[in-house]
Design a protein around this nucleic acid. Structure first.
Lengths: 167, 167
DNA sequence: TTAAACTTTCAAAAATAATTGAAACATATT
DNA sequence: AATATGTTTCAATTATTTTTGAAAGTTTAA
């Protein structure tokens, strides 16, 4: 397999994977493209490589920057903007998990809390509902915290190691 | 908030959360409904509660059973089929993560392996591509294995505890 | 074997999500 | 101030995904 083919295959695969996890295909493709580019890429080039419109590129680049995983870059003497992706994978994972937690998990937890704290009266049906949603709340909270801890750990272990070695 | 309202809110929320993670809304809603039901529910009742067609109910129930998180149940003296959801949350998480790994992560890993093993020639661009996709392969593999270990641990810790106590 | 009760399938329709493209907006250059 | 270069926005279009509903299929019972 030659380079161009491999690159294309990677971009397509990353796009498909994104779709399956609720991220729009183009957004994932742009991200893929930037991840494997050794230098910043202009909007023109992104449009060209992925065969997408200016509007599409613009909106998805904005979204990626909102997620904090793509950055704008300015080149000396150039008017136009260039884009790079976060290439450190621990950092990437940390940012994605933080955003998804903030945007999706936390709001869901809030609702779970609400519905699990109705007064159960006496029917077995209602008791089961309260019991199950309470368990779910605890479980999701636990999982969410665990992700947090893991990313925290990943972000710090090198720093910690350095400090340790300096002692 | 009264029971019916809480139940509806929970089903809607779970459905929305599913959508955001690439699971179709109805599938997530059916699952939600079954999770908080203290007894097996018939297709009729699911259709009624979620206001969906028979075909929709049938297809999504099949999908949920394929994921291994919903079971068919037969009641003595009844012709029709009833459905229940896996209610143990550790087990639920284990099954979901196993399926997503099998269906999505493993195939993606295969492609990552392929594209990361092209011969890099000498251009910096190609070298970066190979380097980055190799890192990504390692990272995804590590994450996938970690999930495996975690679910394995969760499934066994009680068993292990019991064995430990018996010694 | 026929009918009744129930489920599955799948082409067509509907709903939802993504994409385009051109006008409006910004900013730098002459 | 006018023009050139580049970006954003968003209503309209297009593509994708989901849902419907009716016909075909299956199983049980009379």
């Amino acid at each position: 397999m030659e380079f161009k083919e491999a690159k294309n295959k990677f971009v397509q695969t990353w796009g498909a994977l994104g779709s399956q996890w609720g991220i729009n295909k183009t957004m994932a493709q742009i991200h893929a493209l930037l991840m494997v580019s050794n230098e910043a890429v202009s909007m023109e080039d992104i449009m060209e490589e992925l065969q997408i419109s200016r509007g599409n590129a613009s909106m998805n680049l904005r979204a990626l920057m909102d997620w904090g995983i793509v950055y704008k870059e300015f080149k000396a003497g150039e008017r136009k903007e260039f884009f790079t992706a976060e290439k450190d994978l621990d950092e990437l994972a940390a940012k994605i998990s933080r955003e998804r937690s903030k945007r999706e998990i936390k709001p869901a937890l809030k609702i779970l809390k609400e519905v699990s704290t109705i007064e159960a009266k006496d029917s077995a049906e209602e008791k089961h509902f309260v019991d199950q949603t309470t368990k779910l709340y605890d479980f999701v909270l636990k999982a969410d915290n665990m992700l947090d801890k893991m990313t925290e750990f990943n972000e710090n272990w090198l720093g910690k190691l350095v400090i340790k070695m300096m002692k």
